[in-house]
Simulated assay, not measured.
Amino acid sequence: MDLSIIIVNYKTHDLTKNTVNSVLKTVKSSYEIFIVDNDSQDGSYQKLESTFQNEISSGKIKLIANDSNQGFAAANNIAIRKSKGNFILLLNSDTIVKKGSIDIPLEYIKHNNDIGAIGPKILLPNGDLDKAAKRSFPNPKNSFYRLFGLSKISKNSNSDNYNLDNLDPDEVYEVDSLVGAFMLVRNETIIEIGLLDEDYFMYGEDIDWCYRIKKAGWKVIYYGKVDIIHYKGSSSKKQKSKLIYEFHRAMYLFYKKHYTDKYSLFTKIIVYIGITLLLIIKLFLNIFKK
């Protein structure tokens, strides 16, 4: 089988249904779909089971119910262990794929044996680029530039420019990191580097995976010639405190895991203090956000 597509559902029945339908309508390669419900407790599992009963009966869709919300990485890993595809696609439940969005990057990675992971251009509903689709690895320097809005003055330096604004979003090139909303990974690569790190609850696992993929000598490719739509949460909406906490905890985990021996003690202390201060500020501002 060419491809195993994994979609994690958590209280997003309608979005998940639309994502799965977009896959069923557009993908021509041989594939299976795993829908992992992370203990939604809102009837999502039962609704999905009813909506896709024919595909479940035929084996095209495998529906998995977790008895607790174990996080995004853990839920994906459950399906990866059961998958049969030569390639694994992590696909968010709030995305819509188009004709060629999956098949074309799949053919590209098939014919380039040095590629470990590939992802397309990702558009927000208003047509803007989701900048997380192509990124440098976070480091103290580009984090400082990003925090103070200085990345625009360093567009010629990928080491300073976290979102790689200097690169054409419609082209194909190697990057450091993709986003977990759409990450197509070679199964051979997963066997070599391991599954997603379950210490990350719902942020950071994609950057961590890409870091390990590149460290093992594989390429990570941004493929800007096809696109998908990502209905990610609007920044104007009030976030749950847990999500804000998990986002900043992921920053801490990544730095601690990969940069402990790379930077001086002073730099690490500054980074950890910065992460903590940002967390406090974001939590405080979120209280007053409508």
Rank of each mutant, 00 (worst) to 15 (best):
Asp2Lys: 14
Ile7Leu: 03
Val8Glu: 01
Tyr10Lys: 02
Thr12Val: 06
His13Lys: 10
His13Glu: 07
Leu15Ser: 11
Leu15Pro: 01
Thr16Glu: 00
Thr16Asn: 01
Asn18Lys: 09
Thr19Cys: 09
Val20Leu: 00
Val20Tyr: 00
Val20Trp: 00
Leu24His: 00
Lys25Leu: 08
Lys28Leu: 15
Ser29Val: 14
Ser29Lys: 15
Glu32Ala: 07
Val36Thr: 05
Ser44Arg: 02
Gln46Lys: 15
Glu55Ile: 00
Gly59Cys: 07
Gly59Met: 06
Ile64Cys: 05
Ser68Asn: 01
Gln70Phe: 13
Gly71Leu: 09
Ala74Glu: 09
Ala74Gln: 05
Asn77Val: 04
Asn77Asp: 07
Ala79Glu: 01
Arg81Phe: 10
Lys82Val: 09
Lys82Ala: 13
Lys84Glu: 15
Ile96Met: 12
Asp103Trp: 08
Pro105Asp: 10
Asn112Arg: 13
Ile115Tyr: 04
Gly119Lys: 05
Gly119Asn: 11
Leu124Val: 10
Gly127Thr: 04
Ala132Ile: 14
Ala133Thr: 06
Ala133Arg: 04
Phe137Met: 11
Pro138Ser: 10
Asn139Trp: 05
Pro140Arg: 03
Lys141Asp: 11
Tyr145Ala: 15
Leu150Glu: 09
Ser151Arg: 12
Ile153Ala: 12
Ser157Cys: 13
Ser159Gln: 13
Asp160Ala: 10
Asn161Lys: 03
Tyr162Pro: 01
Asp165Cys: 04
Asn166Leu: 07
Asn166Gln: 11
Ile190His: 02
Gly194Asp: 14
Tyr200Gly: 01
Phe201Cys: 02
Asp208Leu: 04
Ala216Pro: 10
Val220His: 04
Ile221Pro: 01
Ile221Phe: 05
Tyr222Ile: 08
Ile229Gln: 14
His230Pro: 07
Gly233Ser: 14
Ser234Phe: 08
Ser236Trp: 01
Lys242Gln: 14
Tyr245Gln: 10
Glu246Asp: 10
His248Tyr: 12
Tyr252Cys: 13
Phe254Arg: 06
Tyr255Gly: 07
Tyr255Arg: 03
His258Glu: 08
Asp261Trp: 08
Asp261Leu: 12
Tyr263Lys: 11
Ser264Met: 02
Leu277Phe: 08
Ile281Met: 12
Ile287Gly: 05
Phe288Lys: 13
Lys289Phe: 05
